[in-house]
Design a protein around this nucleic acid. Structure first.
Lengths: 107, 107
DNA sequence: GTAACTTTGCTAAAATTGGGTAAAATGAAA
DNA sequence: TTTCATTTTACCCAATTTTAGCAAAGTTAC
């Protein structure tokens, strides 16, 4: 995946929709679609579920792609090292773990 | 690293500073330090360089830790799968690659 | 040239962010 | 128990960021 925007463009074209047609389905106008597809702006997270439905793809997969894109761009912008994601991953695992424990304790 | 906030607290305590003393050094007040250390708010990215200097640690390492924390929290909040970071990593690598190529072409 | 499609410049409202103050809460020592 | 140092919380705010809108310009294909 080059970017989330490029992914959206490819899926839209697979469906044979113009930017305007696609935009009408997700309730944004053509210029906004253009900016999203060209990575000038991000689509709102609130529309990801509708997007998955329109493209007939798994919601969680799309959501992952969305955040992966977001993180990648930020990591690139701030010149993070390649280690940043492994650190992030272990921390996310830790967060899941302690919150699972706390959930159990409360129960 | 449990979180960036906990990392800051540990380093501060190693130096024997109170939150108030530490806050004076980075020009934020005690309640703000408390929030940052307890992961209620993020420290501004603009202060990361000063932070590295105060803790006598490598700037790029601190910056990585900062973003790793940010990504981890977001990935956790939105229940991303464990794959999100590997996707992000390959995209970041791709971004570096195409921008290196473009740099060369322009040159 | 024309029509369909896409992009850009400028704007705006809403949301987010990182911090402040005042006061409450906590912890340790006497 | 009291006191004092330290930390946390409630409430607030200015600045910034964000996604989108409109109008118009630009591009592409026929």
């Amino acid at each position: 995946m080059a970017s989330f925007g490029k992914f959206i463009k490819a899926e839209r074209e697979k469906k044979g929709w113009s930017q305007t047609e696609f935009g009408a389905k997700i309730k944004i106008n053509t210029p906004a679609v253009s900016r999203i597809e060209n990575d000038r702006k991000m689509l709102s997270i609130s529309k990801i579920e509708l997007l998955a439905t329109l493209f007939e793809l798994n919601y969680n997969t799309i959501k992952d792609l969305y955040f992966a894109d977001k993180f990648a761009k930020e990591a690139y912008e701030y010149k993070c090292s390649e280690k940043v994601f492994s650190v992030a991953e272990s921390q996310t695992n830790y967060l899941r773990e302690i919150n699972a424990k706390q959930g159990k304790i409360k129960f």
